[in-house]
């Protein structure tokens, strides 16, 4: 339990709308589970936490199956998967990950769609004036432009917005010294191109890319970004709009070392073309301080379990 990990914990909610990893028509990496998309399914994803030393730290699948055998629900488990399920190799371990996947996919607990924003979409509550301003800034392509990645539109079948398009981007998030591995100046978590994910190691253009997370429940899932660098939403939104205009606020040695969580050869991968981070050094940020507050107020309407 005292083993530290490398990354922030992503939410399991709303992942039944995700897909396997693929490159779309334009070559944009899309889908996949984990922040680097390396798991092909929720079942695949469910393997790691059981075994990772910094998570549940079981030494082997056998250790997991031993625990499963003595679980209170083992008879139900054997009823579903067969009384001989523990007799063949890792079959019981595989079925356990499958059962987790089906739970995450089938149970509405994982996609309640009952935030204040959902009630607003259903016409049951109004957003406050500040929340409405925040929504407008969030959507506006020349202001926050957040919806370009955290889409706020319903899916074609009418499913309420997921606030992610499941693509990947490189935001140049500052290095987080609180991650012990970062004490080694040669260690970098490069997301899509490694070290955890191994199949895209040669795609240097993707180094530093992480999956766009849903912003549903973001107000209650601090810290933020793959490396947990920021503790508050206000910091996150400020970072988005001030990263390029005021880099000194974000990087200890901004002059030489902007995007300091990437080795120099991959810093050009950082997205500097799209709003809100297409601004110039010393220019006006895309959002004012009040507008940042408005966006944060809006993000707080995305927390499930709202009581109208």
């Amino acid at each position: 339990m005292d083993v530290t990990g490398f990354r922030n914990t992503p939410t399991l909610r709303y992942l039944s709308f995700n897909s396997v990893f693929f490159f779309d028509d334009e070559g944009t990496p899309t889908g996949g589970f984990n922040l680097d998309g390396r798991a092909a399914s929720l079942m695949d994803q469910a393997h790691r936490p059981f075994l990772a030393p910094h998570e549940m730290a079981n030494a082997t699948p056998v250790a997991v199956m031993d625990k499963l055998r003595s679980a209170s629900y083992v008879s139900e488990f054997m009823q579903v998967f067969g009384s001989d399920i523990f007799d063949t190799g890792d079959a019981a371990f595989e079925r356990a990950t499958f059962a987790l996947q089906q739970y995450e996919k089938e149970s509405a607990e994982f996609r309640p769609f009952d935030s204040k924003f959902d009630y607003f979409l259903a016409g049951k509550v109004q957003l406050s004036a500040q929340e409405m301003r925040g929504l407008a800034l969030f959507n506006n392509p020349t202001k926050g432009n957040c919806a370009a990645c955290h889409s706020s539109a319903r899916l074609p079948d009418g499913t309420p917005p997921l606030f992610t398009d499941f693509t990947y981007d490189n935001l140049g998030v500052p290095r987080n010294p609180d991650i012990p591995a970062n004490a080694n100046p040669d260690y970098y978590d490069l997301g899509l191109c490694g070290p955890d994910r191994t199949d895209l190691g040669s795609r240097s253009d993707l180094c530093g890319g992480f999956k766009v997370p849903t912003l549903r429940n973001v107000a209650v899932t601090a810290p933020y970004f793959h490396n947990g660098k920021f503790a508050t939403l206000r910091e996150v939104v400020s970072f988005y709009v001030r990263r390029d205009t005021n880099p000194e606020e974000w990087y200890p040695n901004a002059g030489a070392d902007r995007f300091d969580d990437l080795p120099p050869q991959y810093r050009a991968n950082v997205n500097t073309t799209e709003a809100p981070y297409n601004r110039q050094l010393g220019g006006l940020p895309a959002l004012t301080s009040d507008e940042i507050d408005d966006v944060v107020a809006f993000l707080k309407t995305l927390t499930d379990g709202y009581q109208p």
């Binding site: 607003f120 979409l121 016409g123 409405m132 929504l135 407008a136 800034l137 969030f138 959507n139 506006n140 392509p141 202001k143 926050g144 919806a147 539109a153």
Partner: peptide
């Protein structure tokens, strides 16, 4: 009006 209110900020 109400549906547009959910689209505010969009093009």
């Amino acid at each position: 009006a109400d549906l547009n209110a959910t689209f505010v900020g969009n093009p």
